[in-house]
Each structure stands twice: as structure tokens, then as C-alpha cells.
Design a protein around this nucleic acid. Structure first.
Lengths: 124, 124
DNA sequence: AATCATCAATTACACATGTAAACTTAATTG
DNA sequence: CAATTAAGTTTACATGTGTAATTGATGATT
């Protein structure tokens, strides 16, 4: 079980693009993030480089351009980050956390239905 | 609506003690955290000082000792951190987040029952 | 060959965070 | 009263993160 490195807020944004469109070039990531953030290309490239250094992203050289791909799945990163959040903010207690979110955020009737089914499945 | 400053992981630990037993002296915080962490008293005092600087903790002088109290409620901090987490990791989508947690973590039958009720209440 | 464009790598710098020692001052103890 | 202890403040230093410029190398174009 490999230890998942800490991924910073900014790095999450980069990873999200990569998980969505891997493999992708730095240019593609830059293009995507320039739209959603006000980061300069150099900023984004630094973030890419740091993720590579952390072992979260890998790359394959294609000519003079690199093709980047995730070394850790989105699911795994989400799981690790979720666990960390749950522990830090709720001391590991799931129910109070769920109650907090259910109180504060919006859900459609279909989503509520689906969650109820999921809870019922958890009773088995 | 005051902007809640970012509270680091270590600072969360300090705040949790304070929310639990406010008002409290630095010594009380130190005693509590020495048990649950391997931090030196100086470390904990620094964290306290930073929280004061961030405007998250206030204090009242009592002799040469300070009595610390939270300037932001636990609920508010949890809400802010939860929102930030939801946005960063799930792009703001509540259902996928709930699904992830329900898949990965344990709940007692009573807790499941309670959550179902809460979901039903959300349907109204 | 010189120039330009493009790409990754290196460097820069400020601030935040983790961790804690050193310092200052006041109170307490012997 | 001197020495010690206790409490808060300041300083220290390494690493992480946000943000981005600069540098170096290579390929394409003129």
C-alpha cells in the first residue's frame, strides 16, 4: 500500500484535468486551466513538475513534448483526502459529518432517493 | 460575513481542545495535546500564537496567564472547511461525495436509520 | 547560419506551516 | 534576596505551497 503524497489545493486542480483527459500534454493542461483559473502557463508547469516529483504524475516523452498520465487514480486520491478530512475535522466520526453536509447542501429528489437506497444496502 | 482564515492541520488540533473547554489557559491546551500528540509545549504555544494572529482565537489576560477563547465557533469552521473540501475534491457535487463516504466507511444500524430519516426530512 | 518559437528545467521569492529553542519578564520558592 | 520556575513572546529553521520569471535546449523557419 503506497503512501499517497499530500496534494495541495492548486495541485488538485492540475490532477483533475489530468484524470479527465489523460494522457495529456502540458499544453493541454495549461489551456484547460488558463480558462478556469488566472494562472500563468509557467505557474501551471511548475505545478505539473511538482506533481511529477511527488510521484503522482508520470510522463512519456513524445518528441520534445511530454505526455503526462496519473500514477495514482482519482479514486485513490479522493479516498485518501476524504479520510484525512474526516479524521481532521470530525475526529473520524462519519455520521456527524454526513449530518453536517445534509443540513447545509442541496440535493435533488432523485439524489435523495439514490442515497436512501444506498443506505438500505448498507443495512444488509 | 467574515472570511474564515485557513486553519492548518496542526491548528485544528489546538482549536478542537479550545472548542471543547473554552475558556482555557495555554497550559491546559498544552496538557491536553501533550497526551494526544508528541508536540513540545513550545510548539503548541506557537500554534496558539498563530491562531491568535489569524483572529481565530482571542484571549483575556488573567494575571500573567492568558485565558483563551474561540472567536469563531466550531460549527462555522467545520462548515467552511467542509465547503472547501467539497469544492476542491468533488467540484461541489454533494452526491458523489456522500456515495464515496458511504462506500468506504462504517455506520451502525442506528446511524443508518437516523440518516434515512434526515434524508426523508430533506424531501419535504 | 541566424533567428524565432516552443518545450521542459531551473531559479526565484513570498508566505504558510511544522516543529521547537531561546529570550524576556513576572511570580514563586528556598 | 537570589535562584528557580512559569508564562508569553520572539526567533530559528526546514519544508511546503502559491505564483511566476528566467534559463537552456531543440526544432522550425527565414
Amino acid at each position: 500500500m503506497i503512501k499517497i503524497p499530500n496534494i495541495s489545493d492548486a495541485e488538485w486542480e492540475v490532477m483533475k484535468i489530468c484524470w479527465l483527459s489523460a494522457p495529456c500534454s502540458a499544453n493541454e493542461i495549461v489551456k484547460a486551466l488558463e480558462q478556469s483559473t488566472h494562472w500563468k502557463p509557467n505557474t501551471i508547469k511548475t505545478l505539473i513538475g511538482r506533481l511529477v516529483k511527488k510521484g503522482v504524475l508520470g510522463f512519456k516523452e513524445e518528441g520534445r513534448s511530454y505526455s503526462y498520465y496519473p500514477l495514482i487514480t482519482e479514486e485513490e486520491c479522493i479516498k485518501a483526502e476524504s479520510k484525512s478530512f474526516l479524521t481532521r475535522v470530525f475526529g473520524g466520526a462519519l455520521k456527524p459529518m454526513l449530518v453536517t453536509f445534509l443540513k447545509d447542501e442541496k440535493l435533488s429528489p432523485a439524489e435523495i432517493e439514490e442515497l436512501k437506497l444506498l443506505l438500505e444496502k448498507r443495512e444488509d
